[in-house]
């Protein structure tokens, strides 16, 4: 599903974000990428969604070599990869329904399709009945669930969650992780980027640990070991 072949990313003048990363993630896998701040976790996410291009190496997503992806191809890639972040990235002036619908509207979806898909994803994230609330009227966990719902509207093959529980209490954290596991069970490859030991240990799946921009361990059923 995802292949990183000898990936290096340098930022001028002389910062090495990641160096010589070789990684193979199979379809339907749940992979936690762990490491301290500044070890290159977010750089890997940026490379995967083509927000950055690697200095060296090749990246293949679903058989598509995206190393030299053209700017007009990036939207096609991003419709196949759902992304959620720590800060939710919701539009506070739009309702829950509108926030999710926005992801479809900007891709030219018809009204009928929007009306069909949004309730479906709201049901998956267990937010049915809250579609008319505004983000600020929701708890942090609910806001993150809205973000996850939005990332699911294109039925992505891959879901990247970059520190999705960073702003949440332990109860909401558990809910979000359970939701990600549920999505994974449906067949979506999930990449969880986290530095939260409890979260990673709770997931109890493959763990890739990064240190100084390099892979320092890759355990099939792993624990947070740093």
């Amino acid at each position: 599903m995802i292949i990183f072949k000898n990936i290096t990313k340098l930022y001028p003048p002389n910062t090495t974000a990641v160096k010589g990363i070789n990684l193979h993630i199979k379809p339907k896998e749940f992979v936690s990428i762990v490491g301290r701040s500044g070890t290159g976790k977010t750089t890997l996410v940026k490379l995967l969604i083509a927000e950055e291009k690697p200095t060296e190496g090749r990246i293949i997503v679903g058989g598509w070599d995206i190393t030299g992806i053209r700017s007009n191809e990036i939207p096609i890639l991003r419709r196949q990869i759902g992304v959620v972040f720590q800060d939710f990235k919701l539009l506070t002036k739009k309702t829950v329904f509108e926030n999710i619908a926005f992801a479809l509207q900007v891709c030219g979806a018809k009204r009928s399709r929007i009306q069909e898909i949004v309730p479906q994803v709201l049901k998956i994230v267990n937010l049915s009945g809250k579609e008319n609330r505004y983000p600020l009227q929701l708890s942090g966990g609910e806001q993150q669930r809205v973000a996850i719902a939005r990332s699911l509207v294109h039925r992505p093959k891959i879901l990247i969650a970059d520190e999705p529980t960073g702003n949440l209490d332990s109860f909401n954290t558990r809910e979000i992780i359970d939701l990600l596991l549920k999505i994974n069970e449906f067949g979506t490859t999930v990449l969880l980027v986290s530095h939260d030991r409890e979260v990673v240990n709770y997931v109890n799946k493959r763990v890739i640990a990064l240190g100084d921009g390099q892979i320092i361990s890759d355990q099939k059923i792993g624990k947070y070991i740093i």
Binding site: R78, A103, C107
Partner: peptide, 17 residues
Amino acid sequence: RQEIGIMKLVGAANWFI
């Protein structure tokens, strides 16, 4: 800028942005 960021994230075409 916030909306543009989200548009890019969810795969809106460049011309649409």
